[in-house]
Design a binder for these strands. Structure first.
Length: 484
RNA sequence: GCCCUCGUAGCUCAACUGGUAGAGCAGGAGACUUUUAAUCUCACGGUUGAAGGUUCGAGUCCUUCCGGGGGCACCA
């Protein structure tokens, strides 16, 4: 598979590959047992004084990241997942042949080293190379060893290069892994059972979004990639699993933005015999705990309780408009005036517009916005306070100017749920493309009886954005969606 | 889909009002036994995203297309 290589860089590496083979060295050996992390070597000799040598031998492996040649002695930097370790190669230790082979290595080659720990006169912990092996020859030049890889497009399209070249990228995705682990651990310890529900669904639901459509050949019909796990998880609560969660990918067929990737990771949990107030407490405690476990040190204060405000008051504070006093589309549109385009927007859409344009960007510290209009929330239970007519028990948590989580006291009255589906169908007939399709199987499940239940969904990518201070979801997704 | 903006060597970046593309790193040859972005010498490295156009002359100006980033729309 040859291609243009204007600088002859590929040819030079190919030539080295052939030279290795000619010398009887396998450039792609099968395994290299007994490797320890470079961080382990650093930990074991943290107190070694400058200029001191030891008898301690280690086998490490990783990518050759830098080289400082010196004729009869050379220093090399080896990078593995845990960090970086300096190697010292001496002609008098290795002998002529091995020294020449080591000096002919390219940056980017994967090597394994057996060596003896010492600390150089300049204070750098170093492994003197007693023996080494090429573990995989690199046939392409790596990114710049000092500047790393800066080109945003290449960083996203070839994330492996970003990970090779940029230590903060490695740290970020290790952080992401610890965040996901901590979320799972918190739910496991709280007695939730992790489940897996279908990604390929004959009918989508659980959120207001357009789905991806795919073809199921054997059944000769279209299926949908899930937009949420909500409805299947609630069927499991009906089934008696009581406390369930799923952490996985959802897919929404919508535009790209710094806050939206068409496939994203969501955790949803459902808890029998609990309400949305319980979920708010669980969310606060969980995020606070996760932040502590991963060593979050940013500006955001996750200490419970978070600020709470009703949606009505939040919009009133930021716009002067009382949406609950203006329950008709036209009255609300008139109050909005020319602040937002109101044509072709129905009442719930206008409320949502006010929230996302005037309130959401201002919510930097963690904030829980409670009590939404029923029209925006087809799966949330009506407010227990009869005075709160048209309002459901739902909250969204916001942080760093974006939505982090969405929760409600789940609607478990099957007749009410049926009426909500019917309302969604009416919105669809009026042209709304993001309505909730009618789900008879879900209704049948509710008719068997679902306990009072509180549920919550939280965007994992956004949690990682918040805890890492990243402003684009593409920074926290390994392979974000890109054009061909 | 619309608007703004960016695209130069493998990587990181230069190139005044249009004057014929340059450096560091990497790679090649060589020197060097404690370097830390090692240093030094020499040579090499380009379809300036693509295709057109204006001009005596285009990296630079214009048009279209491709891709990235930001914004709008869509959007949770």
């Amino acid at each position: 598979m040859s291609e243009e290589e204007p600088s002859g860089l590929l040819a030079a590496r190919r030539a080295k590959l052939e030279r290795l083979r000619a010398d009887g060295v396998d450039p792609f050996p099968h395994a290299y047992p007994g490797v320890v992390a470079t961080a382990t070597v650093h930990e074991r000799h943290a107190d070694l004084p400058d200029g001191e040598e030891t008898e301690a031998r280690y086998r490490v492996a990783g990518r050759l990241a830098a080289r400082r040649g010196q004729g009869k002695m050379a220093f090399l930097d080896l990078v593995d997942r845990s960090g970086r370790l300096q190697l010292q190669a001496r002609r008098d230790v290795l002998g002529e042949e091995a020294m020449e082979r080591l000096l002919s290595l390219d940056l980017g080659d994967l090597i394994g080293v057996d060596g003896t720990a010492l600390r150089s006169r300049r204070g750098e912990l170093t492994l003197r190379v007693d023996d080494f092996a090429i573990l995989a020859k690199s046939l392409r030049p790596p990114p710049d060893k000092h500047h790393g890889l800066q080109d945003v497009e290449t960083r996203y399209r070839q994330r492996e290069l970003d990970l090779i070249a940029n230590e903060d990228t490695r740290a970020l995705f290790l952080l992401r892994a610890r965040i996901v682990s901590a979320v799972r651990r918190a739910l496991d310890e709280a007695g939730f059972v992790e489940v897996e529900t279908p990604v390929l669904q004959p009918l989508y639901g659980g959120a207001l979004a357009r789905p991806f459509v795919t073809r199921f050949n054997a059944l000769d019909r279209d299926f949908y990639l899930r937009i949420a796990t909500e409805l299947y998880l609630k069927r499991l609560v009906v089934g008696g699993l009581e406390k369930v969660y799923e952490l996985g990918k959802d897919f929404r067929n919508e535009g790209l933005s710094p806050k939206h990737n068409p496939e994203f990771t969501m955790v949803e949990w459902y808890e029998a015999y609990a309400d949305y107030g319980d979920q708010a407490k669980r969310l606060e405690a969980l995020v606070h705990s996760v932040a502590q476990q991963v060593g979050y040190e940013g500006e955001l204060d996750f200490t419970p309780p978070w600020r709470r405000v009703t949606l009505r008051d939040a919009i009133l504070d930021h716009t002067g408009i009382d949406v609950l006093a203006l329950r008709s589309r036209d009255a609300l549109a008139e109050a909005i005036g020319d602040r937002l385009p109101t044509e072709d927007r129905n009442w719930p859409q206008l409320v949502d517009d006010l929230l996302s344009k005037y309130v959401e960007p201002k919510l930097i510290q963690p904030t829980i916005v409670m009590d939404y209009p029923v029209e925006l929330s087809p799966f949330a239970k009506a407010h227990r306070d009869p005075a709160q007519e048209g309002v459901v028990e739902r909250f969204e948590a916001f942080c760093q100017g974006m939505e982090l989580a969405n929760a409600f006291t789940e609607l478990n009255d099957p007749d009410d749920q049926r009426a909500r589906f019917e309302a969604q169908v009416r919105y669809a007939e009026a042209g709304d493309e993001e309505t909730q399709p009618f789900d008879e199987l879900f209704l049948a499940a509710l008719e068997h009886g679902m306990p009072p239940t509180g549920g919550l969904g939280m965007g994992i990518d956004r949690l990682v954005m918040v805890l890492s201070g990243r402003r684009s979801i593409r920074e926290v997704v390994l392979f974000p969606a890109m054009r061909d």
